[in-house]
């Protein structure tokens, strides 16, 4: 049985766990480095990236996960999780920390404050139409040529919202808030 961790420091952890368990994946809430034993991949949930970054450092997970990510450990980050993976953060707090593993620039709250949060159907490569929920979402403003764009808000791929670079997946919306598990399934199938 596939065993996937969900970073459980703060955020919508249980939605991710429920969705993975629906796909017959065993999930492990990860709060300390010891929780990383025997995992085939990990999900970074939505939440507040500044709070999660703070807790990653105090728990020792920043270091332990950083080493795993350097060794190609698979990670799927949604919203705050995407920010934590990104190499460049715009409009973050001063010197906001991240793993810097996904070669993209993201602008925090790049679509506006909560009042501008929205749902919209997007077309996902290999999956089809998907109802995407954006909540104070980060906007992906630059991607390197190593990064594949799997979904975009426009037809030309100029506004990426789901990206993949090797074993790292980043999503500016929240597939875990819907009942549609196809994106999680694609990540699990890649493990």
């Amino acid at each position: 049985m596939t065993r996937v961790g969900v970073l459980a420091l703060q955020g919508d952890v249980r939605e991710h766990r429920a969705m993975l368990e629906h796909l017959d994946v065993e999930t492990v809430p990860v709060r300390t480095p010891a929780d990383l034993q025997g995992l085939q991949g990990i999900v970074f949930p939505g939440g507040e990236s500044t709070a999660i970054a703070h807790l990653l450092k105090s728990s020792g997970l920043a270091e332990a996960l950083g080493e795993l990510i350097n060794d190609d450990f698979p990670v799927f980050g949604t919203c705050a999780g995407l920010i934590l993976l990104s190499s460049e953060i715009l409009d973050g707090r001063a010197q906001q920390w991240s793993f810097g593993a996904l070669d993209v620039a993201v602008r925090r709250n790049g679509y506006g404050r909560q009042i501008a949060s929205f749902e919209v159907p997007v077309s996902v490569s290999g999956i089809g139409e998907y109802e995407a929920v954006f909540i104070r979402a980060p906007r992906i403003e630059r991607v390197s040529k190593e990064v594949s764009v799997l979904a975009s808000l426009d037809k030309d791929g100029e506004h990426p919202v789901l990206i993949r670079q090797g074993n790292l997946w980043g999503c500016s919306f929240h597939p875990e808030l819907t009942t549609d598990s196809r994106i999680h399934d694609a990540f699990v199938q890649s493990l």
Partner: peptide
């Protein structure tokens, strides 16, 4: 904008905080 999912969704993001 302003759907129930989007409004409740922000509360979901604050969990554990």
């Amino acid at each position: 904008t302003g759907s129930t999912l989007v409004k409740r969704g922000l509360a979901d993001m604050l969990r554990g905080g």
